[in-house]
Structure formats: structure tokens, C-alpha cells
Design a protein around this nucleic acid. Sequence first.
RNA 1: CGGGGAGUAGCGCAGCGGAAGCGCACCUGCUUUGGGUGCAGGAGGUCGGGGGUUCAAAUCCCCCCUCCCCGACCA
Length: 597
Amino acid sequence: MSVLFLRTLRDDPADADVASHRLLVRAGYVRRAAPGIFSWLPLGWMVLRNVERIVREEMNRAGFQEVHFPALLPREPYEATGRWTEYGDNLFRLQDRRGADYLLGPTHEEMFTLLVKDICTSYKDLPLSIYQIQTKYRDEARPRAGLLRGREFVMKDSYSFDLDRAGLQASYDAHRAAYVRTFDRLGLPYVIVAATSGAMGGSASEEFLAPLDAGEDTFAFCAGCGYAANTEAVHTAVPAVPAVPAAAQALAGETPAARVEDTPGTPTIQTLVDELNRRPDLRRPDRPWTAADTLKNVLVMLVHPDGTTEPLAVGLPGDRDLDVKRLEATITPAVVAAFGEAEFAARPQLVKGYIGPRSLGKARGVRYLVDPRVVEGTSWVTGADAPGRHVIGLVAGRDFRADGTIDVAEVRAGDPCPQCGAGLELRRGIEIGHIFQLGSKYAEALGLAVAGPGGQPVVVTMGSYGIGVSRAVAAIAESTLDDRGLCWPREIAPADVHLVAASKDKSVVEYADRLALDLSQANIRVLYDDRSDASAGVKFKDAELIGVPTVVVIGKGLADGVVEVRDRASGTTDLVPVGEVTAHLVELCRADPDAAD
RNA sequence: CGGGGAGUAGCGCAGCGGAAGCGCACCUGCUUUGGGUGCAGGAGGUCGGGGGUUCAAAUCCCCCCUCCCCGACCA
């Protein structure tokens, strides 16, 4: 360490909030070069390469072949699939000296598809799975938490090519299994959740989330049946109409007709519910009104990739907020913009605060989609499209009809599980992997077809599979660190053994020098703190901060013929006779379950 | 892009009209020698940028830039 390119910091950097980010900077693994862009120092680079190596080994073991594409890409393929525009501002674009457009690759579906088109001509060339480990570029609106969300990051991306859906399913399953092995080996806790496919297109997709609070995703899971889904992908459980007698009665016209009431000064759900419960003439006989009895209609403006806009009204139970993330996941590639004052002014039939279903709908120029809970036969209090007026007992299917349903209300802890009905729990997670069944979107756009058994062309069916490699480094750090510093699993760590010469005593230094050499020759990776100008205390603190799994201390015990072998994670110390140290450490490093292979 | 906070030495911070400072880190010497030793000396700054007010601006005013946090986007 006396010559290692490293400087540890005693204070936390002020711009780092997430623990893994703080410690990776403090322990000298990475430094910020620009927003969301990091330089890797020797220790960090070793860790990143270790993670890469594990990912690579597991991909190869699964029979996938490694290739490598450029990061600097021409515009045309991305134009052909529409992603030049769909990716929007997230794409780093640049021009060459002649003014031709280029981009820095955010992901490589197009390039892989074109390469396979170039090489594969027959069904006999399939199935095929190829991958790369590559630096990706996305001009994120908000880089965050150091390595967790950068604008430049390392990703392993795989792509599968099959003749039909069954083949795709098999390739998908093979990747899923390889991911399970990879993340197990990386020592990362993870949950596999149902996901939406976003800008990637395609159908089925699942995410691997490391359940850590530093993550940006929220997922719902059911302890009862094992259901797990990103909140974006949760399907709201809906009772069937015939199962609810009151709903059937309402549809049959056996309940009172809807009536419009003056409810002055009730532009919000809360003021409305208070008014309903305050006024004797409006009270429910059986129980007080709640926000869940009201139907609120939220207006948004959809902006399509081509720039055109479309108004959309979403009808939700009044106790739920619209989850914009879920909405955007549903309507992608369009994005959501606010429905501003100007939009209201242009549509006088929409009375802010009192909008009801009867002013909405395709026929009136505003597409109207309702929450799945608004099933036919349910009765609602909702706006009467006049200032200070609401309608009570408006029955879906009898008094109004929406253009369809849309499942974009916020998901809450305790909501019924769509599989078994038990209460869902919510948790945050870091997305470390994502697998997609793409289908034929890219193959069709780029003309990838091979000759089938009968000689006729068959459009290839694709899947794409990503692992955030640099993100995984941060996730592993996040899941293993403690209040003293980083704490790597052995296979990820920059070294097996952190050797500390805890004294300047000549015999100590000489012994430590020789042990460092012995261990290296025994194929143990050693980080040797041979600094002569650092006190023992400083070295101990740095060892804990850096987080190598085993710390070996040569010091005052040497006079009694022993050295200390400390386990970084547990803090326990063994005294080992000097003659047995090398054998002991070889044993320790081999025995570690992480160090298999 | 909305809402909040912050830009002063490598890192952490104080100063908020009147000579740019403190702690850590760094360099030199001594000291200490198993839990971030102590002492002395030293080096290191366009005070984020531009404009303005003033005899005088890190400090007051205007514009811009950047960073962090919470939301909207993703591996």
C-alpha cells in the first residue's frame, strides 16, 4: 500500500447520501469525473472486473457467446426501430465532421439484430444467444447515488434469437436460470418480480431486484403465495360483478336513480366527504361516507413521440392517487404532461373540481379510462360538471360507460394480492437485472428473417437480457457494508487478505514482507499495508474501510509466535502460529463458499 | 422538467461589507509506536462564472452555471 494509487478519506463526501456511494468514494474505489460519470481507481477497478468475470463465467457456462460492439453507433438502425425519437433526451447524440448523426449506445438491440441478420440465414443457425459486457450511455435526467444510476455505466446485455415462441420461452428460461446462478454467486439478495417492458417493447418481462432501501424501484409482494411484481406491473384484483349482490341489483335498476345535489365549496375529495357526512340529507344510513366512495377524474395530457398531444381522463376511487410512473409504463412510448390552465380553458365543459363521467369520453373529445375497481354496478359520488354540484349514486354501466379501464392507481400496502387475495407488502429494490421477451419488434423493423425448414422466410423471435454490472458493484457494497466500512464477499473483494504490519519493529516488518510473498506464491491475493508512516490505528481503520474479507495483523503477537487472523464481517480474531499461517489462509480462502470454482 | 437545499484549499466546514480562515489530508523535523499520537514549521485559493452597487464585495443586487435531496425517466 505504500505505493498503491489510493487515498482514503476520513470524512464522508458531502455530495454522497447513499452509504455505498459514500464508502466507495471514501475508501478510494471511485471518484466522480462528471455528473453520473465515474473514474475507477485500482481497488474499484479490481472489484468491477471481479463482478464482470463472474457474470462472464456464468454466461459462458450457459452456452452464450461473447461478442463486443462499439459504443459509438450510427443513427440509421435506431431510426429504423423508432428509438432515435422514442429514447428522447436520454440519448447522447453527436455528429461527425460531416454532420452525420451518431449516438452513444444506451442498449444494443438494433446492432445485435443487424449483426445476426448479416450472419444467420437459416433456421439451422438458431437458436442463438450472444452477449457483451459494455459501457452504456444514457443522458439521465437525474443521475443518483453514485454508481447506482450513472450516465455512463457497465452493462452485460444478452440477446436471444429463436424461430418461434416456444424457442423464445426456452431461451428466456435459460437466461433466467443463468441470472439466478449469477446473482447467487455475487452474493446479492434478490427478488424476481413481474415487470413492464418500457421503451424496450415486447411482452413478458421480469426484473431481478435487490431488496434494499437505497433502490429506486418499489415492488409489491405477497408473503402468502409468493406473488411479486414491480408496482408498475401490479394488476389490481377486481371482484367479479355477479359476486357482489349490490352491484347486480344496481344494474337491474333496483337501486335509486342517481341524483344531483348542491355541494357548494367542495372542490377536493376531502371537502366533499366532509360535506356529505355533515349534512343530514346526504348522510348514508349504514355508515359514514369515505373517500373510497367517490370517483375522481384526473386529467392528463399524453405527448406522443411524434409530438402530438392527446387529452386523457382517468377515473379513480377518490382515496387513491394516480401513480404517474404506472401511467407512463402503461402508455409508453407516450409521456405524461400536466393538464394546464390553457387546456381547461380550451374545454369549457370540464369544470375543475367537479368533473364527472358525463363530460368525458371519446365522443366528447377526451378519452376516458377508469380504474379496474370501477366495475359495472358500482355506485359512486362524483362531479356533476357544474360548479359546486355533485351527483350521488351514479352507477357504472347503468348511468355511464367509460372507454375502457386502465390500471394506474397507486398501489398500497395491504391491497389484495391478485393471485390469492391476501394483503400485499411493499418494499424498495435496486434493479440489478431485467429480462425481456421482445418478440419480433426488432426483427420486423430491421428485416431479420431466416429460411425455415420449408425454405420460406421466418421472422426471428428475440429476447433481451440485461445485468447492470457497475450497478451490481454498488448493490453488493450496499448489501454488505456496516458502520465501519465496506465488507466484500471474497470473490468480489479486491484481495483475499489485507495484511497489516502493525509495528515498525524490524522483525515484524521482515516477517510481514516474507508472508506477503509466501501468500502471493500460494495464489492468495494480498493487499499489504507496508506503510512506514502510518500508525497501527490508521491501518486498522483503513483495513475496515476497504473491506477485504480477511485481515491479517502482524504485531505484538509475533514475539509469542502468533499472528492475528481477523474476519472482517464478524470481527472475530483467531491467533495462528506463525508456522501455520500460510496453510491456514490457503484453507480459509478455499473453504469460503463464495470462492467456489 | 417541477419543488427544496448548497457552491470558499484534495476532503469536511466557518466567515456574510473593511488584510481569505479552521479541522483532516499533504510536505519537513522531532515525538509517539496495537485503534485515525502530540508539537513545531511549511506548501496549497481566479471564494462556481459574468455583470452591477460601493472608497472597499467571499459578503449586497441581477443573470448564468454546477451539485445534492424529493418527485417525473431507466440496467
